[in-house]
Design a protein around this nucleic acid. Structure first.
Lengths: 206, 206
DNA sequence: GTCTATATACAGATAGAC
DNA sequence: GTCTATCTGTATATAGAC
């Protein structure tokens, strides 16, 4: 790689890193291109040498996150059969990995969320994102269905609900104005999604 | 009331109605003040005679919705004791009313959601909105806790999760690119929140 | 490739006639 | 109170020198 390309790659990396920092502070929608370039110590014009728009930069960050996510889930279940989401340990492990990925990519995750919401309800972007991101849940639920297990509802809908609540909490829950630990959130969501409000006892005493 | 005040009230109502229409089409963040005035058949300048900003108009719409919501819930349980959310019928009724209010105020509900998200993660607005809107769930859960019922987690967190999933779905789920009926959604969420993925049977066979 | 300087575009808000 | 016309601020994107 020539020295020129190295410099370019450096700048691109600097812009991405700066974007992550400033997205975390002000949020995606509230940051201007110039906020990113300033935080990266570059000139405004340099931005467009690497990205056509803020949206395109976000897609690059999304690709990075996807890569990290698939690695994290590959570590969890290396090529094995689908998880049984009604097994407490497996459900918890799954939620814990998903939560860890979302939290370590807080800024990117939040930016994608903001972008999808800003597109408006009629665009369907948020629903599309929800369905895409929960494809793994959906598959596991469909597997359960094949095993004659009765599901609470359509696998697509249930999967979207599960993923939706996780990403909603990951976005809304910030240190400072609420003090739930990661473990507390994971435990609570595991219990809620596994046995619901009724608890592990099944049907309540009449 | 003088004729002048009548005209003013008419214009204000026209602006609110127009805002609801255009929010539903383009979303809150994507609509300009001029979109609203145009849809209402008024001049741009007239807007500021009634609202200082788009945000203030939204607060007015929120007040209208709150009023409607409290009526709906009052009809459901007129002055009675707190609901038992582990009772299938009561949980379903509760979710059904919440869903009906959100759907019949789709545009306002969506606009509030967009506004809270656009404020950025660091603002805490989305969390605040979530906690405020789920105060009723929280109280019911705390009541269950007092009855020695074991909850999946902190009432504030569980309530936020319940409300979060409902408003997320209400925003993301639109006719056209997904075809779940209201009943299907309510049934699925009732089942999920009541008994989780494991189902009403309680602990699964080993 | 990176920089400075500038052009373009548009939403928000106001001024003043009616 | 409502209108038309306009001003202001600001974010995006480009042009051209280095």
């Amino acid at each position: 790689m020539g020295v020129r390309k190295v410099k370019a790659a450096e700048t691109e990396a600097a812009l991405k890193a700066a974007a992550i920092r400033v997205f975390a502070e002000r949020g995606y929608l509230n940051t201007k291109i110039t906020d990113i370039t300033a935080a990266a110590g570059r000139a405004t014009g340099s931005f467009y040498q690497h990205f056509a728009s803020k949206e395109e930069l976000l897609q690059a960050l999304r690709a990075d996150m996807r890569e990290q996510a698939s690695e994290a889930f590959a570590d969890e279940a290396p090529g094995g059969p689908p998880h049984d989401l009604t097994d407490p340990g497996q459900l918890r492990a799954h939620l814990a990995v998903a939560w860890a990925v979302m939290r370590s990519n807080r800024a990117t995750q939040g930016a994608l969320f903001e972008s999808a919401v800003a597109a408006g309800p009629a665009s369907g972007e948020l629903w599309e994102q929800l369905v895409t991101d929960t494809a793994m849940y959906r598959e596991h639920l469909e597997y359960l269905g094949e095993q004659q297990h009765t599901l609470p509802g359509d696998p697509v809908l249930i999967a979207a609900a599960m993923g939706g609540i996780m990403s909603m909490l990951a976005y809304a829950l910030r240190p400072g104005y609420s003090d739930f630990s990661d473990d507390e959130v994971i435990d609570a969501m595991t219990a809620l999604l596994l046995h619901g409000l009724a608890g592990p006892g099944g049907v309540l005493p009449g």
